[in-house]
Nucleic acid binder design. Structure first.
Lengths: 95, 95
DNA sequence: ATAATTTGGTTTATAAAATAAACTTCTTTA
DNA sequence: TAAAGAAGTTTATTTTATAAACCAAATTAT
């Protein structure tokens, strides 16, 4: 009846991050922070979780002299998102 | 960009309960329990929260000699659900 | 008859999660 | 060179989800 919802994606902030990355093809930490309205600390933690699960890739480089963290969605992350959306339909398609 | 998600509905079990009640026009506790696969304790707690928010109505009657708890969606709950679905779209409609 | 089990839950305790506050390091500006 | 800002991370706190333990009444078994 109801399909289980991936707990990693069923979180407002992590869902926003993944959603953003799917549209964006690589996004920097400050941009994600601005778009989601999250605090830096919260964002950092959630990015770690998504990264640990292999849903996103995190690249730490420098932009001139300043550190620059770039995030990208992975195929695993994209698949997880698609599955999540599919599962959600079992809750939303109220007949 | 991303619309806030009603925390009361952004919960796997509570969303399942509300989804069920929208389809069902009144459902008994054991039926909800069976359909959602939740434990009685968890279900009881989540029903209380939805009821406290006015999203559902809980009627306690008797079925013969046995207690019988019937839940129904309220107009408030239906509206909240519709708003929640609308807000979700801002995360799911990835362009 | 009465002991054990089942039904229909509620209350309470625990585990997990979200979130922000505090901190760090380096850089730029006053 | 002191103060402020940028870019994060770590840690602590609060909230939430979840299940375990419990309770009362009814049913079934002995």
């Amino acid at each position: 009846m109801f399909k289980p919802l991936d707990p990693l994606l069923h979180s407002e902030l992590r869902l926003a991050i993944v959603s953003l990355l799917i549209s964006a093809e690589g996004a920097e930490f400050p941009y994600i922070k601005e778009q989601t309205g999250a605090t830096a600390g919260n964002l950092s933690v959630q990015i770690d979780k998504l990264s640990a699960a292999g849903y996103i890739e995190v690249e730490k480089t420098f932009k001139g002299k300043k550190p620059c963290t770039v995030c990208r969605i992975t195929p695993t992350g994209l698949k997880a998102f698609e599955d999540y959306v599919e599962a959600l339909k079992s809750y939303l398609d109220v007949k």
